[in-house]
Design a protein around this nucleic acid. Structure first.
Length: 467
RNA sequence: GGCGCGAUAGCAAAGCGGUUAUGCUCCGGAUUGCAAAUCCGUUCAGCCCGGUUCGACUCCGGGUCGCGCCUCCA
């Protein structure tokens, strides 16, 4: 086994070895729940979903933790705007998030800790940092992290602490010793949601909750810490500063970051306002198409999100489902058997190389072509290959849908009984060699957006997808 | 300005120092009552300038362009 993973910390791929043989502790930064998830969130969820599925398939005992940040300035602001409590707001968007990820075929992580359920851990961690002089309570009631005290500050993102000093902003009302210091505990203003603490009522700062929750769920050293493309700085840099100062050991051995989703060459983001929500997109495209699109590129490369990308993803997926149409009766092979096949070996080789899903998919496309090459009358000889295809695809969370259901999705507005009736009428006309009638029916259905496909087994139909 | 990533055929997207990526599209053929699907085949690459090498898309140096982070954002 030659399994390697790219590490943001070192900027290169390296053979992956966990701290404890056979066991992997993986922590991924989840989302702040004050709005619906967009495709960028979807990418991180799908990316680490594939990673977790693959690690498990490879035989590791994985514990996958993905947090939910449910207390934060934006949440307070949004709740106030909506005139609802932060609990109402966060519960609403947590439910929405779960719906969205489920649609995308994302399996739930083992643990989904929430910041508000770990206030005690957060306070304890801050106390440790204060005790060792890495943090201080300021005159305004806030508690800050003393960046100058942490020698390795900037190691994840290659920042020179001096440069940060030059570029940092100093807000007038802040009581920081140093402009680079960041807040661990934020004193509450009157009426704000808050928790009691040794430094007065307040709430956690942005970065401390991840240090506290990862420690509570997985311990002081993580095998893998992951997240989105905009998290290395400052979020993960600050997590390292907090956790390594408090625990006196390496915080995470491997740092993994998903690539950005772009719109017209620009990053999709809340602040730019150029985002598409998952629920919006899956109204027009089968959710598996969205998943397929996200898996079609390497997880670290930027993806351009556009109507054309979705159409292309759909075309690719349709190819697989067309192949599987005649084999709904074939169950997936076991993983152990699948990886001994030539396609399986290629698949493993690709995925072992930093989760190269694009190359893994190429192996599956070749397998599909091989299946299609088998002559109709000896279809049964293709069944083992189909079983392999299904087994390998399932590790990517793909091809689990019934082929007809997939190929006919979007047909809700159509009268399927009428379609079936026209097909059988045409069948009779074909037997009668009344080809004029046959073509008339074909045209009629095509006008409805239905494409007919005659084969030795009979006639099937699918939705006509343009583009 | 600092740090980092990228530049591949019509489009998308990978690996690789010499041998087909792959998907979609185009074209030709097989197949089909006609189609569709499928299969076969063909065409179309590696930003620019140097260097290393018997040989570079692949390694090294320089440049150009694009993008990300440096401030809340996955």
């Amino acid at each position: 086994m030659n399994f390697s993973v790219y590490n943001t910390l070192t900027g290169e791929k390296a053979p992956f070895t966990p701290l404890q043989p056979g066991k992997i502790a993986m922590y991924v930064c989840g989302i702040t729940v004050y709005d619906y998830c967009h495709i960028g969130h979807g990418r991180v969820m799908v990316c680490f979903d594939v990673i977790s599925r693959y690690l498990r398939a490879r035989g590791w005992d994985l514990t996958y933790v993905r947090n939910i940040t449910d207390i934060d300035d934006k949440i307070l602001k949004r709740a106030a705007e909506n005139n609802e409590s932060i609990e109402q707001l966060t519960e609403r968007f947590i439910s929405a998030m779960i719906e969205d990820e489920t649609q995308l075929g994302v399996l739930r992580p083992d643990l989904e800790p929430r910041a508000t359920h770990h206030i005690g851990d957060i306070i304890a961690l801050i106390e440790t940092l204060i005790a060792s002089d890495y943090a201080y309570a300021a005159s305004n009631g806030d508690v800050y992290y003393r960046v100058a005290k942490f020698a390795n500050y900037g190691k994840l993102t290659n920042k020179n602490p001096e440069d940060l000093l030059a570029g940092a902003r100093i807000a007038v009302d802040e009581a920081k010793e140093d402009p680079r210091d960041f807040v661990l505990w934020k004193a509450a203003k009157t009426g704000e949601t808050c928790w009691p603490s040794p430094w007065g009522d307040g709430r956690p700062g942005w970065h401390i909750e991840c240090s506290a929750m990862s420690k509570a769920c997985l311990g002081t050293t993580l095998d893998i810490h992951g997240g989105g493309p905009d998290l290395p700085f400052p979020h993960h840099e600050n997590e390292i500063a907090q956790s390594e100062a408090a625990n006196q050991c390496t915080y995470a051995n491997f740092w993994m970051h998903a690539g950005a989703v772009r719109i017209d060459g620009e990053k999709m983001s809340k602040s730019l306002g150029n985002f598409f929500t998952i629920r919006e997109v899956i109204k027009s495209y089968h959710p598996e198409i969205v998943r397929f699109l996200l898996i079609s590129s390497h997880y670290r490369s930027p993806i351009n999100y556009a109507e054309d990308s979705l159409k292309e993803a759909r075309a690719g997926l349709e190819r697989f489902y067309k192949t599987l149409r005649d084999f709904t009766h074939v169950p997936a092979q076991t993983w152990e058997d699948a990886i001994t096949t030539p396609a399986g070996e290629r698949f493993i080789e690709a995925m072992d190389d930093d989760f190269n899903t694009r190359v893994a998919l190429a192996a599956l496309y070749d397998l599909a072509r091989e299946i299609n090459t088998v002559p109709v009358k000896i279809k049964a000889t293709a069944e083992p290959m189909v079983a392999t295809l299904k087994a390998l695809a399932s590790v990517l969370g793909l091809l689990g849908e019934d082929p007809d259901r997939f190929l006919q999705s979007g047909a809700q507005h159509l009268d399927t009984a009428l379609i079936e009736q026209l097909i059988s009428e045409r069948q009779q006309a074909r037997l009668d060699k009344n080809y004029a009638r046959c073509d008339a029916i074909r045209d009629e259905l095509l006008a409805m957006g239905v494409i007919l496909e005659d084969s030795k087994q009979g006639t099937s139909w699918r939705i006509h997808t343009e583009g």
